[in-house]
């Protein structure tokens, strides 16, 4: 009986795969090591709770004394985001054409375009803002330039992927009737990739609105400058007004973007 059981029994580790198990162990070790580096401290969290309460109480009621200058900064933020996104989206199109396998003229151009897009995307927008503030000075122009570069990094990649995902059939049909590569890209591949490109552009606009708030913290113009000044002056009531304004702006842009996305994509069906 005992030998029969041994024969039909299966080891509990039989289905275990070594490489995934080792990867999971490595992840656990890295996470524990990161916990130490992240400075996680329950004691500091508990002692900080009264301070959070004080700041939160000072935020209410929100200040209304500087609403008009804050509103003007908010408008500047919207302008920066809009201009930065539009210029970025327009510049992303040639980048994407060069960076998509089915539209690029050569592997060298493809590699160069992919490399530049990766550089624009991987360097954080705040780093680009610091670079442009140092280059062209404080103000919204530096922020707009940072948003342009950030949008190219975001849209360039997604536009290229949209182009690569297009059905090759219609393109082959136009190739068979003697159309040049540029003609095929403009009147066949871009129209087919358009839903994905519109989607990416509207996400880029939402992203740019959120980014443009942060960029102000390093002097790149907009409502972020007002927020930084209020926090430095311990005017938490003014900071609260700005946070509420940012909240309304971001939610409005997201709603408008969702509406525009639905209207544009449905109208093409």
């Amino acid at each position: 009986m005992s030998s029969q059981l041994t024969e039909i029994n299966i080891s509990r580790f039989a289905g275990l795969k070594i490489i995934p198990a080792l990867m999971f162990c490595a992840f656990l070790l890295v996470f524990l090591w990161s916990l130490n580096g992240a400075g996680i401290s329950l004691r500091e969290l508990i002692t900080g709770i009264p301070n959070m309460g004080v700041i939160a109480s000072e935020m209410v009621p929100p200040a209304t004394d500087r609403v008009w200058p804050m509103f003007k900064s908010l408008v500047t933020t919207v302008q920066m985001a809009l201009v930065g996104t539009v210029i970025g989206v327009v510049l992303s199109i040639p980048f994407a054409i060069f960076a998509a396998r089915n539209t690029t003229p050569s592997i060298v151009v493809y590699s160069a375009a992919r490399g530049l897009i990766s550089l624009f995307r991987t360097v954080p927008d705040i780093a680009w803002a610091l670079f442009f503030v140092a280059s062209v000075g404080l103000g919204p122009f530096a922020g707009t330039l940072a948003l342009v570069v950030d949008t190219i990094g975001f849209c360039g990649r997604f536009f290229a992927e949209s182009l690569e995902e297009t059905d090759p059939g219609p393109n082959q049909a136009l190739q068979t009737l003697g159309a040049k590569p540029l003609d095929r890209i403009i009147c066949c591949q871009i129209p087919m990739a358009l839903p994905g490109m519109i989607n990416a552009s509207l996400f880029a606009l939402e992203k740019a609105v959120r980014s443009s708030v942060i960029l102000g913290l390093v002097g790149a113009g907009g409502i972020g400058v007002e927020l930084a000044v209020s926090m430095e002056m311990f005017r938490y009531d003014q900071a609260m007004t700005i946070i509420l304004m940012i909240f309304v702006l971001v939610v409005s842009v997201e709603q408008l973007s969702a509406f525009a996305r639905k209207s544009i994509l449905d109208s093409g069906k």
Partner: peptide, 16 residues
Amino acid sequence: RSQIGFVFQKHQLVPR
């Protein structure tokens, strides 16, 4: 190719 017309099985029109 511009002198040759080619009709495909699945029409291959540009949608949209």
